[in-house]
């Protein structure tokens, strides 16, 4: 076995320090080392987006990043989306618009949609669909997800 790597990082605004196997993905690191299980595994090869997180301001599939790579960086996950003041407007809109059924893809969609609205608050429907195309949902047909994002824009 190879030695574990020592990592210092910031996750959801909080400093974190941990040891991680060099082969462990950021997804495994979040879920198994840090117990942040809100980030989900759907495919483990960068095609479903259930594990989407924000790494230094960019959305990434955390299954395609190594845990050791976040040394000195900042990571935002679904667990950091709601604050003491309550839900993020997207979370509220997903509830009101019934934009989830089973809910397994929901964290990834929320993280992606939040990043979209921060960059392109005026995105039209086509642009929203384009931006969210990296996140697979098998339950909803996407219709209510798109409408929830548009509700927050309105």
């Amino acid at each position: 076995m190879v030695d574990k790597i020592h990592v210092k990082t910031t996750i959801n605004g909080l400093p974190q320090e941990f040891l991680v196997d060099p082969f462990m993905s950021l997804l495994e690191t979040l879920r198994d080392v840090l117990n942040l299980t809100g980030t989900k595994e759907g495919c483990n090869d960068g095609n479903c987006g259930a594990c989407t997180v924000v790494l230094d301001g960019r959305i990434v599939d955390s299954c395609c990043v190594l845990g050791a790579e976040i040394e000195g960086k900042t990571v935002e996950t679904i667990e950091g989306m709601a604050g003491p003041d309550g839900l993020h407007p997207l979370q509220q809109a997903f509830l009101e618009e019934a934009a989830l059924q089973c809910g397994i893809c929901t964290p990834g969609f929320l993280v992606s949609a939040k990043a979209l609205l921060e960059r392109e608050p005026e995105a039209d429907e086509h642009r929203i669909r384009y931006w969210l195309a990296g996140n697979l949902c098998r339950c909803t047909g996407y219709d209510k997800i798109i409408k929830a994002v548009q509700k927050v824009q309105a």
Partner: peptide
């Protein structure tokens, strides 16, 4: 069950 599912708190099988 919506709140748990939009905040990542909901516990699925792999969690």
């Amino acid at each position: 069950d919506g709140l748990d599912k939009v905040t990542g708190r909901a516990v699925y099988g792999a969690d």
